[in-house]
Amino acid sequence: MTSLPSAPPARKLGLVIDLDTCVGCHACAVNCKEWNTGGHSAPLTDTDAYGMNPSGVWFNRIHSFEAGDGPAGRTVNFPRSCLHCDEADCVTVCPTGASYKRTEDGIVLVNPDTCIGCKLCSWACPYGAREYDEDEGVMKKCTLCVDRIENQNLPEEDRVPACVSTCPAHARHFGDLADPASAVSKLVAERGGFDLMPELGYRPVNKYLPPRPRAVLPAAPAAEAQEPGLPGFLGWVDRILSR
């Protein structure tokens, strides 16, 4: 059923992405591809993988933006994946019921057995999060690693999305954003986490943390004033030689 859950999900699982610490290494995207090409929506097919025009399905793409000009300007690495929106139009436009939002945790998924590949959901997503699999003829998207986060066969510390487990800068955090006491909710509150394109009203679950304000260093004092005179005999020699 492609109607959204009638009551808001009790849990809202999602990601919090720290734009201050992301180093833009693409490790999250690579580990996402690696895990998910054998995961819930497997395979993530590629076309012309070793040719001149490789193209393929990825759930996670890492952009880099420049913001501001001059001394205030910043380079910001910007990972982008499905935001598992509360008001997910990609779900409601689906004519077959293949696209759905889970009532228990709000994760947005596609059933590959009933998707007709009309691509309308990708048009309805303002964030460009859905990618069509040309090879399989169905739409694919981030699953928030549903096959990891509840997987009893994995050690507990690995029960997080592949992108989160691999991030070397700890720029990605996973948790329940409906619970104000959760670590991710506290992080969002402390750091002023924000929604992407809030004006479109999709109410994304995933949040982004802004780059911290640049530390303002005290102006370097003049070199001479900074240099303390040498004490005693050495000071006398220094003063004589400095003449």
Partner: peptide, 29 residues
């Protein structure tokens, strides 16, 4: 309906423009 500033949430810093795309070739989107 939106701008590079609202799409990235970085408008508070200033004008936003793409520095590096995620990949060199075009994708489905």
């Amino acid at each position: 309906p939106a701008s590079p500033e609202s799409a990235t949430g970085l408008g508070g810093i200033g004008r936003v423009r793409l520095l590096d795309p995620p990949h060199t070739g075009p994708n489905f989107v």
